[in-house]
Amino acid sequence: MTLTQNRITDLFAQKSERLLNVYFTAGFPHLDDTLTILRGLQAAGVDLVEIGMPYSDPVADGETIQKSNGKALDNGMSLKTLFVQLADCREEISVPILLMGYINPVLQFGVENFCKKCQEVGVDGVILPDLPLDLFLDEYAETFREYGILNVHLITPQTSESRIRLIDDESDGFIYMVSSASITGSTKGISESMQTYFERIQAMNLQNPRLIGFGINDHETFDTASQYANGAIVGSAFIRHLDENGTSPESIHEFVQTIRA
C-alpha cells in the first residue's frame, strides 16, 4: 500500500538508524502542556513524537500510562481540546506527529471528522491498538487514505509469520514492534528471548521500517533495540520523567540526552 508522501515517510527516506520516537499523554501533567512538550522534544532532537489521546480504559497500558491518562482526563483533556491545541503547531513544529490512543473516543468524534482534523492540524499518523487490522481494512482504511493519515500497526513476539507479512503489506510509515508479551511500562530490560525475536523479524526483510516499543526506558534498552530495528519508542519512562522533573526545555533535553547518550 503506498500513500501520498507525508512527514513520516519522508523521515524514513532520509534516516534509517537510531530513530527516537517519544510518547507523551496529551493533558499531562497539565492541560496546556502539549505545545510546551512538543517544542521541548523537537528542540532536543527527537525524530518522531507520539501524542497520547487519553482514555478511561487503556487496556494495553501499564500503571504509569494509566495514571497519566487518568490525570489528563481529570485535567479536562479531550480530542476536541487537543485539536484546538494543535491547530497552529505546524508553524513551529516540523517533527512527524502521531496520535496514539484507543478507538472509542475516535468513534465518538467520528472517524472521518477525526481524519479531517488530523490532516488540518498536521498530524501524520495514528496508532490505535484496539482497532485490529481486518476491521481497519474493512471499515476505515479508505477514509484514512483519503486524508493522507497513516495507520501504524503493531506486531508482537506471538504474531505469526504470515500475519506479519500481511501487516507489512498493509502498512505504510513503519511497523510498531511490541518488544515482548506485555503491556506498556515494563522495566525488565531486554532479554535474550526478546533479542531472538528481534533477529527473527530482522531476517524477514520487511518492506517497512520498524520501531521497537514497550519496555524501552534508558540508554541501554534504546541502544539494543536500535541494533535490531530502525529505532525505538519511549513512553512510560518519559511520563515518569515529566512527572518528576517537569516540562521545561532543559528537563526534556536532559531526558532525551540520557536515552541517546
Binding site: A60, L131, P132, D134, Q158, T159
Partner: peptide, 19 residues
C-alpha cells in the same frame, strides 16, 4: 463469521491478544 450481531460485536483487540 466475524463475530457480529447486526452492528454489534466483532473483536476490537490489540494485536497482543490476537493470537
Amino acid at each position: 463469521d466475524k463475530g457480529f450481531y447486526g452492528h454489534f460485536g466483532g473483536a476490537f483487540i490489540p494485536e497482543m491478544l490476537y493470537p
